[in-house]
Amino acid sequence: MLQARDLWKSYGKKAAVSGVSLDVNAGEIVGLLGPNGAGKSTTVAMLCGLTIPDTGTVTVGGVPVGDDGSLVKRRIGLVPQDISLYEDYAAIANLELFGALYGLEGAALKDRARAALELVGLSDRARDKPQSFSGGMKRRLNIACALVHDPDVLLLDEPTAGVDPQSRNAIFENLELLRSRGKALLYTTHYMEEAERLCDRVVIMDHGVVAASDRKEALLDLLPPEKRTKTVVRDASLEDVFLHLTGRQLRD
Protein backbone atom coordinates (compact mmCIF):
# COMPACT_ATOMS: atom_id res chain seq x y z
CA MET A 1 0.00 0.00 0.00
CA LEU A 2 2.67 2.48 1.09
CA GLN A 3 5.93 2.26 -0.74
CA ALA A 4 9.05 4.38 -0.28
CA ARG A 5 12.01 3.98 -2.58
CA ASP A 6 15.49 5.31 -2.05
CA LEU A 7 14.59 8.41 -0.08
CA TRP A 8 17.33 10.96 0.47
CA LYS A 9 17.08 14.18 2.42
CA SER A 10 19.78 16.60 3.54
CA TYR A 11 19.63 19.86 5.49
CA GLY A 12 22.63 21.84 4.38
CA LYS A 13 25.58 19.52 4.45
CA LYS A 14 23.96 17.24 7.01
CA ALA A 15 22.33 14.14 5.59
CA ALA A 16 19.20 13.32 7.58
CA VAL A 17 18.05 10.34 5.51
CA SER A 18 20.21 8.40 3.08
CA GLY A 19 18.57 5.93 0.74
CA VAL A 20 15.66 4.70 2.86
CA SER A 21 13.26 2.25 1.27
CA LEU A 22 10.35 0.57 3.00
CA ASP A 23 6.94 -0.94 2.35
CA VAL A 24 3.81 -1.11 4.46
CA ASN A 25 1.17 -3.47 3.18
CA ALA A 26 -2.56 -3.40 3.76
CA GLY A 27 -3.52 -5.15 7.01
CA GLU A 28 -0.04 -4.77 8.42
CA ILE A 29 1.59 -2.80 11.20
CA VAL A 30 5.22 -1.93 10.55
CA GLY A 31 7.32 -0.61 13.40
CA LEU A 32 9.83 2.15 12.67
CA LEU A 33 12.43 2.06 15.41
CA GLY A 34 15.59 3.97 16.00
CA PRO A 35 17.38 6.18 18.50
CA ASN A 36 16.95 9.93 18.56
CA GLY A 37 18.40 11.52 15.41
CA ALA A 38 18.15 8.30 13.44
CA GLY A 39 16.03 10.01 10.75
CA LYS A 40 12.62 8.56 11.69
CA SER A 41 10.79 11.90 11.84
CA THR A 42 12.27 13.07 8.54
CA THR A 43 11.25 9.77 6.95
CA VAL A 44 7.68 10.08 8.26
CA ALA A 45 7.54 13.70 7.05
CA MET A 46 8.53 12.54 3.55
CA LEU A 47 6.04 9.69 3.61
CA CYS A 48 3.10 12.02 4.25
CA GLY A 49 4.18 14.82 1.92
CA LEU A 50 5.24 17.30 4.57
CA THR A 51 8.81 17.26 3.33
CA ILE A 52 9.84 16.80 -0.27
CA PRO A 53 12.69 14.28 -0.58
CA ASP A 54 15.82 15.38 -2.39
CA THR A 55 15.54 12.16 -4.36
CA GLY A 56 13.38 9.09 -4.16
CA THR A 57 9.66 8.42 -4.40
CA VAL A 58 6.75 7.72 -2.09
CA THR A 59 3.61 6.12 -3.45
CA VAL A 60 0.28 5.07 -1.97
CA GLY A 61 -1.43 2.38 -4.01
CA GLY A 62 0.99 3.13 -6.79
CA VAL A 63 0.17 6.88 -6.88
CA PRO A 64 3.03 9.26 -6.04
CA VAL A 65 2.53 11.42 -2.97
CA GLY A 66 2.97 15.09 -3.81
CA ASP A 67 3.04 18.09 -1.56
CA ASP A 68 0.37 20.61 -0.61
CA GLY A 69 -2.93 19.85 -2.33
CA SER A 70 -2.00 16.40 -3.67
CA LEU A 71 -5.24 14.39 -3.59
CA VAL A 72 -3.43 11.16 -2.75
CA LYS A 73 -2.81 12.65 0.66
CA ARG A 74 -6.47 11.91 1.37
CA ARG A 75 -5.41 8.28 1.66
CA ILE A 76 -2.90 9.06 4.41
CA GLY A 77 -3.56 9.85 8.06
CA LEU A 78 -0.89 11.37 10.26
CA VAL A 79 -0.82 11.15 14.05
CA PRO A 80 1.83 13.66 15.11
CA GLN A 81 3.97 13.04 18.17
CA ASP A 82 2.56 16.18 19.83
CA ILE A 83 -1.06 16.35 20.84
CA SER A 84 -2.16 18.41 17.89
CA LEU A 85 -5.63 19.54 18.86
CA TYR A 86 -7.43 22.82 19.34
CA GLU A 87 -7.86 22.66 23.08
CA ASP A 88 -10.70 25.23 23.14
CA TYR A 89 -12.60 23.57 20.34
CA ALA A 90 -15.05 20.76 21.08
CA ALA A 91 -13.80 17.23 20.36
CA ILE A 92 -16.38 16.73 17.61
CA ALA A 93 -15.52 20.17 16.16
CA ASN A 94 -11.84 19.19 16.00
CA LEU A 95 -12.79 16.07 14.08
CA GLU A 96 -15.11 17.91 11.73
CA LEU A 97 -12.43 20.50 11.05
CA PHE A 98 -9.78 17.94 10.10
CA GLY A 99 -12.35 15.93 8.16
CA ALA A 100 -13.22 19.04 6.14
CA LEU A 101 -9.55 19.52 5.29
CA TYR A 102 -9.62 16.06 3.73
CA GLY A 103 -12.62 16.88 1.56
CA LEU A 104 -15.43 15.52 3.72
CA GLU A 105 -18.59 17.56 4.05
CA GLY A 106 -22.22 17.42 5.06
CA ALA A 107 -23.68 14.25 6.49
CA ALA A 108 -20.63 12.18 5.52
CA LEU A 109 -18.42 14.46 7.58
CA LYS A 110 -20.67 14.25 10.62
CA ASP A 111 -20.99 10.47 10.33
CA ARG A 112 -17.25 9.98 10.01
CA ALA A 113 -16.54 12.28 12.95
CA ARG A 114 -18.96 10.35 15.14
CA ALA A 115 -17.50 7.02 13.99
CA ALA A 116 -13.94 8.14 14.76
CA LEU A 117 -14.97 9.28 18.23
CA GLU A 118 -16.72 6.01 18.84
CA LEU A 119 -13.69 4.05 17.74
CA VAL A 120 -11.52 5.72 20.38
CA GLY A 121 -14.22 5.53 23.06
CA LEU A 122 -14.97 9.25 23.35
CA SER A 123 -18.55 9.38 22.05
CA ASP A 124 -19.89 10.62 25.38
CA ARG A 125 -17.42 13.52 25.39
CA ALA A 126 -18.12 14.76 21.88
CA ARG A 127 -19.16 18.26 22.93
CA ASP A 128 -16.45 18.68 25.55
CA LYS A 129 -13.28 20.59 24.88
CA PRO A 130 -9.95 18.71 24.91
CA GLN A 131 -8.66 21.09 27.58
CA SER A 132 -10.86 19.18 30.03
CA PHE A 133 -9.55 15.77 28.89
CA SER A 134 -6.95 13.57 30.54
CA GLY A 135 -3.66 12.94 28.74
CA GLY A 136 -4.87 9.54 27.55
CA MET A 137 -8.12 10.94 26.18
CA LYS A 138 -6.23 13.60 24.29
CA ARG A 139 -3.96 10.94 22.78
CA ARG A 140 -6.96 8.95 21.64
CA LEU A 141 -8.61 12.03 20.16
CA ASN A 142 -5.29 12.83 18.49
CA ILE A 143 -5.50 9.46 16.75
CA ALA A 144 -9.19 9.91 15.93
CA CYS A 145 -8.39 13.16 14.11
CA ALA A 146 -6.09 11.20 11.78
CA LEU A 147 -8.76 8.57 11.19
CA VAL A 148 -11.74 10.80 10.52
CA HIS A 149 -11.29 10.67 6.74
CA ASP A 150 -10.86 6.89 6.82
CA PRO A 151 -7.34 6.74 5.34
CA ASP A 152 -5.77 3.62 3.88
CA VAL A 153 -2.42 4.42 5.44
CA LEU A 154 -1.92 5.61 9.01
CA LEU A 155 1.41 7.07 10.12
CA LEU A 156 1.76 7.15 13.90
CA ASP A 157 4.62 9.05 15.48
CA GLU A 158 4.97 7.85 19.08
CA PRO A 159 1.23 7.92 19.69
CA THR A 160 1.39 6.59 23.25
CA ALA A 161 3.91 9.01 24.75
CA GLY A 162 2.95 9.82 28.33
CA VAL A 163 -0.28 7.84 28.57
CA ASP A 164 -1.45 5.52 31.33
CA PRO A 165 -1.52 1.75 30.75
CA GLN A 166 -5.29 1.70 30.28
CA SER A 167 -5.17 4.28 27.51
CA ARG A 168 -2.15 2.62 25.92
CA ASN A 169 -3.95 -0.69 25.92
CA ALA A 170 -7.03 0.95 24.40
CA ILE A 171 -4.89 2.55 21.71
CA PHE A 172 -3.32 -0.81 20.91
CA GLU A 173 -6.74 -2.37 20.58
CA ASN A 174 -7.79 0.46 18.23
CA LEU A 175 -4.72 -0.08 16.07
CA GLU A 176 -5.22 -3.84 15.97
CA LEU A 177 -8.81 -3.25 14.90
CA LEU A 178 -7.63 -0.96 12.11
CA ARG A 179 -5.17 -3.60 10.96
CA SER A 180 -7.97 -6.13 10.89
CA ARG A 181 -9.88 -3.71 8.64
CA GLY A 182 -7.04 -3.77 6.13
CA LYS A 183 -5.33 -0.49 6.96
CA ALA A 184 -1.59 -0.09 6.52
CA LEU A 185 0.02 1.28 9.69
CA LEU A 186 3.52 2.62 10.24
CA TYR A 187 4.23 2.87 13.94
CA THR A 188 7.17 4.91 15.21
CA THR A 189 8.17 4.29 18.80
CA HIS A 190 10.97 4.13 21.30
CA TYR A 191 9.29 1.35 23.27
CA MET A 192 10.47 -2.09 22.12
CA GLU A 193 7.69 -3.88 23.98
CA GLU A 194 5.14 -1.87 22.00
CA ALA A 195 6.79 -2.89 18.76
CA GLU A 196 6.92 -6.50 19.90
CA ARG A 197 3.26 -6.54 20.76
CA LEU A 198 1.90 -4.64 17.76
CA CYS A 199 4.17 -4.87 14.79
CA ASP A 200 4.21 -7.52 12.11
CA ARG A 201 7.44 -6.22 10.72
CA VAL A 202 10.07 -3.84 12.07
CA VAL A 203 12.33 -1.34 10.31
CA ILE A 204 15.31 -0.25 12.40
CA MET A 205 16.94 3.01 11.39
CA ASP A 206 20.21 4.57 12.54
CA HIS A 207 22.24 7.47 11.16
CA GLY A 208 19.69 8.05 8.42
CA VAL A 209 19.85 4.58 6.92
CA VAL A 210 17.84 1.41 7.35
CA ALA A 211 19.94 -0.89 9.55
CA ALA A 212 17.51 -3.79 9.36
CA SER A 213 14.02 -4.53 8.08
CA ASP A 214 12.19 -7.81 8.54
CA ARG A 215 9.69 -9.76 10.58
CA LYS A 216 10.39 -9.76 14.31
CA GLU A 217 11.39 -13.40 14.36
CA ALA A 218 13.76 -12.97 11.43
CA LEU A 219 15.40 -9.97 13.04
CA LEU A 220 16.44 -12.17 15.94
CA ASP A 221 18.61 -14.08 13.48
CA LEU A 222 20.72 -10.98 13.12
CA LEU A 223 22.03 -11.55 16.62
CA PRO A 224 25.12 -13.72 17.14
CA PRO A 225 24.10 -17.26 18.21
CA GLU A 226 25.29 -16.79 21.80
CA LYS A 227 22.99 -13.78 22.24
CA ARG A 228 19.86 -15.28 20.77
CA THR A 229 18.70 -17.01 23.92
CA LYS A 230 17.84 -15.09 27.08
CA THR A 231 16.62 -16.66 30.27
CA VAL A 232 13.61 -14.78 31.56
CA VAL A 233 13.02 -15.44 35.25
CA ARG A 234 9.48 -14.14 35.46
CA ASP A 235 6.16 -15.21 34.11
CA ALA A 236 4.48 -11.86 34.03
CA SER A 237 5.47 -8.21 33.85
CA LEU A 238 4.71 -5.42 36.27
CA GLU A 239 2.34 -4.06 33.70
CA ASP A 240 0.41 -7.31 33.86
CA VAL A 241 0.11 -6.92 37.63
CA PHE A 242 -0.91 -3.28 37.30
CA LEU A 243 -3.60 -4.08 34.78
CA HIS A 244 -4.76 -7.04 36.87
CA LEU A 245 -5.18 -4.88 39.95
CA THR A 246 -6.57 -1.77 38.31
CA GLY A 247 -8.43 -3.43 35.49
CA ARG A 248 -8.55 -2.70 31.77
CA GLN A 249 -11.46 -0.30 32.08
CA LEU A 250 -10.61 3.16 30.72
CA ARG A 251 -10.39 5.80 33.46
CA ASP A 252 -11.64 8.98 31.84
Binding site: G69, L78, D82, G103, A146
Partner: peptide
Protein backbone atom coordinates in the same frame (compact mmCIF):
# COMPACT_ATOMS: atom_id res chain seq x y z
CA UNK B 1 2.13 19.76 10.74
CA UNK B 2 -1.31 18.18 10.83
CA UNK B 3 -2.70 20.94 8.61
CA UNK B 4 0.16 20.58 6.18
CA UNK B 5 -0.34 16.82 6.02
CA UNK B 6 -3.85 17.42 4.70
CA UNK B 7 -4.44 17.81 0.96
CA UNK B 8 -4.78 21.58 1.10
Amino acid sequence: KRMRAAPV
